[in-house]
Amino acid sequence: MNVGLWETGIVTGILTGGVYALMASGLTLVFGVLEIINVAQGSLIIAGAYLSYVLQRYLHMNIFIGLILTMPFMFCVGYIIDRVFIRRMKVDRVMMSILVTFGVALVIEGLLTMIFSSGYVHLQSGAINASFPFGGMRVPYIYLYCFLMSLVILAALYVLLYRTAFGRALRATVQNRNAAQLIGIDVNRMSSITYGIGAALAAAGGMGYGAISSFNGNSQYDLISRVLVIIVLGGMGNVGGALIAALGMLVVEDVVAAVWSPSWSTLVFFIILAATLVIRPQGLFRAKEARQQ
């Protein structure tokens, strides 16, 4: 056994897992409130990454500060997508949502490819090539900054969901849309806001992803499959579960890739996923358990 590689695998898994948790949080939140599977989340993440790229490239804005603009912008994009596409679905919402949001994803992908071409881009930051020594390895600053950013945003999301009147109304909608409507909550408005928040979280997640990986319009396909797996493992609709699942998934993948073989890392993770779902078909955490927090 190689202790050095174990340590590095765990550290990189936790750091990268934070970014994936951020990307997955929007998806799981949207599922919880709207009861739809938002396949467009991957393309929203990439759109967010491109927005950061535009601000950094043309306005020379720091990618982290740029979130002040990209998150509200993507919130508006998400709000409009819900009003135009999602709200119109009245029956069989889960199945229909897969088709509709896949269509939305293809439109976004097409627009991104048309505007930015299909060449790969990468977000720039002074921290990208810099690192500091930590326990026999060097930790890249960009991974640490992205991880910290994810924690801050997820903490803010927690406060919004569990410590505000809006959060209470939103959680009531998660629990029972009809009952929420009966007590005067505007469920449609709540849904649009939630989809907007999901898109805003995608903007932040996209910035994190773009800072550690090259991307183009097609990068959404690899992302959406991984993010979907995270929310299934964490429990559909459970933000805290998504965080734990993302950290667990990336730690397992990175340790297996570093210590054993990268070709086994995904397989090992899926074995764990399958085993978890056999024991707990609802995932590690249920949405209901989260509501009790």
Partner: peptide
């Protein structure tokens, strides 16, 4: 000497294995 899946997005652990 390792072959990794084509859909890999996180290359850091492989790079760390090479460095090691």
């Amino acid at each position: 000497s390792k072959i990794y899946p084509a859909e890999t997005t996180d290359y850091l652990p492989i790079a760390l294995g090479i460095i090691h």
